[in-house]
């Protein structure tokens, strides 16, 4: 089983501890929501899991598909089926979305370089007609504009365009576990619905596991998580079912946290903690 098992994970950035002991297990086919105010460490968790060099793991372990994730390079993690939908996708001028997608698919197939190889058993690059077909399907599902994939990767894209292309990549790369880092930010309500339905479809039809990181509750109207976790100051302070997210929406963070016997951090104002603020 390609489960993601995080145990007592401590992460520092430039010597400052941001995550102070995260325990979390995401199994295939499960949807988890990780909620929390700005600065609680949500994005740090996503970058650390993907292996960004600036995020230093000081303690703990992460197992993915039965292997030690922390020992792997960034690309090995991806090829094993871990996907991160970035909050701020990087522009790569001069590299067209189409070429990049084909390259990423081939990388996942284990193709080296341009795939020219004398070994008959070496992995083969995706054939152009097949690539076109899967690309068309994914574009249709996510309502991605044809012009967008001819452009350079994220170069001059609007926030919404970037997010759609992230989810397009996810649909094509078929990960076991996807981390969606604030995918909802920058999307208008129609785009949010399309993207969320796409994620839901991958979970239902392909058994993908998802860790949906969000500041706001609104994406959860379209993706219904079985598990909801609240992250405050680098620790998961409360976990529950979907009703926990609903309570956050109705009551705001502070009362919910209090009901778990946790005091909301003083530096975070009430408005910041209101789950419904959008």
């Amino acid at each position: 089983m390609a489960d993601l098992i995080i145990k007592n994970l401590h992460v520092s950035v430039e010597g400052t501890e941001i995550l102070s002991g995260i325990d979390l297990t995401v199994r295939k086919g499960e949807i988890h929501a990780l909620m929390g105010p700005n600065g609680s460490g949500k994005s740090t968790l996503s970058y650390a899991l993907m292996g960004h060099p600036s995020y230093e793991i000081t303690q703990g372990s992460v197992e993915f598909d039965g292997q030690d994730l922390l020992e792997m390079s960034v690309d090995e993690r991806a090829r094993l089926g871990l996907f991160l939908a970035f909050q701020y996708p990087q522009a790569v001028p001069g590299v067209s979305v189409t070429n990049f997608l084909r390259m990423a698919i081939n990388a996942h197939r284990g193709v080296r370089g341009d795939g020219r190889n004398d070994d008959p058993d070496a992995p083969k690059p995706i054939k152009i007609p097949e690539f076109r077909k899967v690309l068309e399907e994914a574009m249709e599902l996510l309502k991605v504009d044809r012009d967008l994939i001819r452009r350079y990767l994220n170069d001059g894209f609007s926030g919404g365009e970037k997010k759609r292309v992230e989810i397009l990549q996810m649909a094509l790369l078929n990960p076991a576990i996807a981390i969606l880092d604030e995918t909802d930010s920058g999307l208008d309500i129609d785009a949010l619905r399309i993207v969320a339905e796409g994620v839901q479809k991958l979970v239902t039809e392909r058994g993908m596991g998802a860790l949906v990181i969000t500041h706001y509750q609104r994406i959860l109207n379209y993706i219904e998580p079985e598990f909801v976790h609240i992250l405050v100051d680098g620790k998961i302070v409360a976990s529950g079912g979907f009703d926990l997210a609903k309570r956050l929406e109705l009551e705001g963070y502070a009362p919910v946290l209090e009901s778990f016997g946790i005091e909301a951090p003083a530096r975070v104002g009430a408005g910041e903690l209101a789950g419904t603020k959008a």
């Binding site: 390079s73 690309d75 090829r79 790569v92």
Partner: peptide
């Protein structure tokens, strides 16, 4: 950051 992004899609560092 560009490198990280491309590697996060399974592309080796060299590629």
């Amino acid at each position: 950051e560009q490198l990280f992004y491309l590697q996060a899609r399974g592309i080796t560092r060299e590629e």
